[in-house]
Design a binder for these strands. Structure first.
Lengths: 212, 212
DNA sequence: CCACGATGTATCGGACCGATACATCGCACC
DNA sequence: GGTGCGATGTATCGGTCCGATACATCGTGG
């Protein structure tokens, strides 16, 4: 998951670790708190070893060759390679169980503007299926096995069930929207969200991996 | 987290691994999919090594000493020890950042009927604080940095923000309820949840660790 | 002048997951 | 009568990710 997110972000611009973490936290803030450096740096190393990213030289052209005064221990800027872009395209296009879990879905969704419509639809439907199953499980529990559980556990289930129902409705709207035309303009009731003027969706001209 | 959950469940009845997993999935179904055996069995081993649980002999009294016909490779039933109960009491009473995260909060909440009221209140308030901060972060993002994000990412944030607002309201009600009297009787709008007859809360006679 | 918060890179131990393996039992279907 | 399949049951392995920790630089305000 981290791998996908990093490749996706570096596709927009070269970045160093700290910056990457901030962008990651911004983009995925809705689904996870903050990425740990204990995950980030090892993953960067792994991606570099695989040849999907490289270190970019941080010389802004106007840098006199000031040699090892303090050995120049600075930030390390990474950029994505051609192979990295291919890898990203491959990861973003694949659907499956891991794509439907909370984290996996969130990351994939965050990069939907780089995903073709057919895949978007498959992911949304898979996610809906997954949540519907979770919902049924909770319903059963609250129906049949209710007397075995204490009041607090029951309340937790009830809250979870409501969240499931809400998410299914949300997905429903996204799917309908996706089928009939273009991007995510879910109607609002007025709560949540600022001014919300246009935020024009990306024109349905499929963001594709350039293949020269 | 798993440690806490296992000790909590074994406090109700001795169980073997498979059963434990099912109960765990039932009790925590609202917050996590299913516990992996790759976590469960090593944790059981760890708890046993620490002396907090022991293997119970599975002899239902009417078992003739039928010796090693197929070497009797059966289920292993675990039960909690006195030290285990103390450990549980210690874990359940502590509050802190890890108690306010999604998983941590869920597990603690699921065992609220074994938690004293003061701790319940501290946890609920800490959780509310945490979610409020997440909410503010998302609000800021949707307000100021909106133009930097694409439509899908924005929609994800909006959905996340709504979930935060909803959870804060939920916590608000639980806190109010907790302060003024007894257990979790959050008023409903009719959706989510079955018959919901009484589900009498445990009488506020603090479930305590017996200290003989 | 120096303390403090933001920026920045990095490692280590541990928690947890997903895949996999394997063995038993009861029941339905042929 | 057999046979295959799903539920029950225990267990390990590799890998991902987190939380704590360490340490160095820079700008700013007291």
């Amino acid at each position: 998951m981290l791998e996908l997110a990093i490749l996706g972000l570096l596709q927009e611009a070269p970045m160093h670790g700290y910056e990457l973490r901030k962008e990651l936290t911004a983009k995925l803030g809705a689904i996870r708190a903050a990425i740990s450096y204990g995950s980030l740096y090892p993953t960067l190393r792994r991606l570099q070893a695989a040849g999907w990213i490289t270190e970019a030289d941080e010389t802004p052209a106007t840098a006199e060759e000031v040699p090892a005064l303090t050995s120049r221990r600075g930030r390390v800027v990474y950029e994505i390679t051609a192979e990295g872009k291919e890898r990203f395209a491959q990861l973003i296009a694949q659907t499956g169980p891991e794509t439907y879990g909370d984290t996996g879905f969130g990351v994939h969704f965050a990069f939907f503007s780089r995903t073709d419509q057919a895949t978007r639809l498959r992911i949304l439907e898979g996610r809906r299926r997954t949540i519907e199953e979770r919902r049924e499980g909770l319903r059963d529990m609250l129906g049949r096995a209710a007397e075995r559980l204490d009041a607090y556990t029951l309340e937790l289930q009830r809250h979870g069930l409501e969240a499931c129902e809400r998410e299914v409705r949300w997905l429903e709207e996204l799917i309908a929207n996706e089928r009939s035309g273009r991007a995510p303009t879910v109607p609002h009731d007025g709560t949540a969200g600022g001014p919300r003027q246009d935020n024009s969706p990306p024109p349905p001209g499929e963001t594709r991996t350039e293949r020269p």
